[in-house]
Design a protein around this nucleic acid. Structure first.
Lengths: 173, 173
DNA sequence: CCGCTCATGTAACTGGTTACATGATTTA
DNA sequence: TAAATCATGTAACCAGTTACATGAGCGG
């Protein structure tokens, strides 16, 4: 997946450096990859060896960096991944840490269970507010798909909050 | 995470075999771990070595299996993981393959983009129907938390469907 | 000139998957 | 009696993280 994400990020920001790609991952609020150097740099060299991306050296002197662009093969690889059919419904459902927690809530005392729910609600609300301000900011910008990605995160957190209400109601019953 | 999930599954089904634990993962519809032998069996031995679980041999003759139970330490490890504070908001957001796809939809033609949306909608609806029938079945059962886990999956898929409507609307605009 | 950001890289590790291998028990 | 299921395990691999290491350029 990181491989595809890197191709995708290059498609959005080309020409860009490995460092630039890392920062995109690091700064993205919708959880995921750390943008660790140990993942990105070896991956970039592999992608270039496979002909999916091309690099050019930017200034051999001093602060030199590689500038990456997507090749035709790289683009068609990305297109191929994007196109239907999508993977199985199960593979579309990521592991939700909150869901896992609630699944095993039975080992806690009733009071502790409620404490977990309350804490989860607070954490979600706060993170939602953060992403919401980002989204508002780019609402009428040119990066529609970036905005929509943030909307996805917002809607999914809203759904989790609604779910937490259900959970609390059933626990109190 | 698999480590915690295994402790959790044992807490729910103890005493149970490694095979039984694997099946729980395999059959769970809310995507995640494959329940691969190469993950479970070494992990179980490690957990026992660490004193988090205990095993007893069930019939040395013929089809023999190990029967696992949670130890006090194992239970308190699970309790510790469950309790607040939850991880950072970012770490609570798993990587959503659908979101990643939409993020990079720009490389496709407008018609292809809509095809992806339509396919995603169909896949989600079908998977939602499957989980929904499971959830209905266990609605008034004793495993409230199992039911709520499925509800979480359902609500999150509903949110994704609503989001896809937003995406389509913005793409058509 | 000090600290921050840009920039690249490696080594050790963790956590998981796939595929293979084995064999007993149950069921159609 | 054949096929499915119960049951356990290993080896090779893949993807990603953490921590370490290095160094240039830029702003206060």
């Amino acid at each position: 997946m990181l491989e595809i994400a890197v191709l995708g990020v290059i498609s959005l920001h080309q020409p860009c450096s490995g460092y630039g790609i890392r920062k995109v991952f690091e700064r993205s609020p919708s959880g995921h990859w750390s943008g660790s150097t140990g993942a990105i740099y070896p991956l970039l060299r592999r992608l270039e060896k496979e002909g999916l991306i091309q690099s050019a050296l930017r200034r051999g002197d001093g602060r030199s960096s590689r500038s990456y662009r997507l090749s035709r093969n790289g683009k068609s690889e990305l297109v191929k991944w994007l196109q239907p059919p999508l993977p199985d419904g199960r593979d579309l459902m990521p592991i939700d840490p909150l869901r896992v927690r609630v699944r095993f809530l039975g080992v806690l005392s009733p009071e502790q269970r409620l404490a977990v729910i309350h804490d989860a609600r607070a954490t979600l609300k706060q993170h939602m507010a953060e992403i919401n301000s980002l989204a508002e900011h780019e609402k009428n910008g040119d990066d529609t798909l970036g905005y929509l990605s943030h909307r996805s995160a917002i809607l999914s957190m809203k759904a989790q909050l609604a779910w937490l209400d259900e959970v609390e109601a059933m626990l109190l019953k």
